[in-house]
Amino acid sequence: MLQTGILIFPGINRERDMAIAVEQSFGKAPKLIWHKETDLTGLDLVIIPGGFSFGDYLRCGAMAAQSPVMQAVKTHAARGGYVLGVCNGFQILTEAGLLPGALLRNAGLRFLSMDTMLSVERNDTIFTAHYQKGQVFRAPLAHGDGNYTADPATLDRLEGEGLVAFRYAPGAGGAESQNYNRNGSARAIAGIYSPNHRILGLMPHPEDLVDPLMGGTDGKPLFDSLAAA
């Protein structure tokens, strides 16, 4: 079982959702780690949840990326530790340089809160083993700055080296089927891996769809995959 910790920055607001999803699949509550912590020894998986760290003032994730705990996350990543960043967590990972590219304002300049469909680009990573390759699943998104961008060479490299984790995909029927890449992300990229596939950043929130009561369990395989690792 992966020893798991969730980072808490001031302004983070999806740490409870994440903890519930982790506990449901792992059978054990994750540790909550305050942003001033400098030692992550003993953890296998560090999760950076969604929210508005430091108000997302200046740029989303910019100030969190400079906080003490992110130095420790870099050390953790350098020794091969696993990192999952969702939404603001993804933004923080790019700002910290642990993943390439950046998340810009949504193409329509409005906050987007809706379900989106994601396609699984590969299922041979620790995060996606319980999905099928090419499977399309549903996940809520809720962000103002999810428009993934990188220079064309980086995008080519991400695609060429199999580092795209999820893409926005058309859904079946209903109003959600059209215009599926609503935030305008380059090549419809919703999530990416580090070259060793041990760091995953994505904008949508699989942790908010792990209970049939909330509309489905499409996000649960991600946590089941990690729980089985």
Partner: peptide
Amino acid sequence: RRWIFDQYDSTVGGQTVKR
């Protein structure tokens, strides 16, 4: 009212049964 509520985060907290 979709255009309006699509701009509001209705799922944070993970407890929203009916949006």
